[in-house]
Amino acid sequence: MSAPSPSRRGAARHSELFDALVELLLTEGFAHLTLDDLAARLRCSKRTLYALAGSKEQLVRAAVVHFFEQATSRVEAAVAARTDPEQRLAAYLRAVADELAAASPRFMDDLAAFPPAAEVYARNTEAAARRVGELIGEGVDAGVFRAVPVSFAAEVITVTMVAIQQRRIATATGLGDAEAYEALASLLLNGLTRPAPAAHPQDEGQVGSA
């Protein structure tokens, strides 16, 4: 087999570096870190970082984009592994919660305070809300969920997700973003799922019968 081309090796190195950068930022935040700090922590040169982006601000935004792209792929893989509409909706929301669980409160605060990165989070939140609306629609069409107005449910979910993204839920409740998505999943599934049919008396047996 021939060795990978320099361009492929370079692309793989960039992806590995972004993965390491994302892990660092998720753990520690980024507002307090300089390019020198990042280069030292990632064990690379500032020149290497400048090859990825022209400034710290651009680098942070690119890392946030990378994080959400990778997270979206994993979330959709979790959904694709299920066929039941209820399980698909639960898998989506809980996979989102799992992805956000890796983010420290400091990262989330820095993200909210940095407009270029906050815009990326907002855009992904809007896409996630649309996806949840689609999954609810699947469940309603299949008769698994109550016949709720899907457009109304999608609007309520969008408002809630945006409030999570903008840190209003964290401020009002103390819940982190991952915890808020777990609570949203529980609330949605309990509210949407059709109740089990009531048992008929003849199905329950007769108490005291001979």
Rank of each mutant, 00 (worst) to 15 (best):
M1Y: 12
S7P: 08
S7W: 07
R9S: 07
R9F: 02
R13W: 15
E16N: 10
E16W: 03
F18L: 15
A20Q: 11
L24M: 09
L24A: 07
E28L: 05
H32W: 05
R43P: 01
S45A: 07
S45Y: 07
T48M: 05
Y50Q: 01
L52Q: 14
A53F: 14
K56H: 09
K56M: 09
L59N: 15
H66T: 07
F68Y: 15
F68V: 05
A71Y: 07
A80W: 08
A80Y: 09
A81H: 11
R82P: 02
P85D: 08
E86H: 13
R88S: 03
A90Y: 01
L93F: 02
V96C: 10
A97I: 06
D98V: 06
R106Y: 04
R106G: 06
D110Q: 04
A113N: 09
F114W: 08
A122K: 08
A122H: 13
N124H: 14
N124P: 01
A129D: 00
R131G: 00
L135Y: 08
G139T: 11
G139P: 11
V140K: 15
D141N: 13
V150C: 08
F152E: 11
A153L: 12
A154C: 07
E155C: 02
E155A: 14
I157Q: 02
A163Y: 04
Q166P: 02
Q166G: 08
L175K: 04
A178I: 06
E179N: 08
E182I: 02
S186V: 05
L187F: 15
L188R: 03
P195F: 10
A196G: 05
P201E: 08
E204M: 08
E204D: 05
G205V: 06
Q206E: 13
Q206G: 11
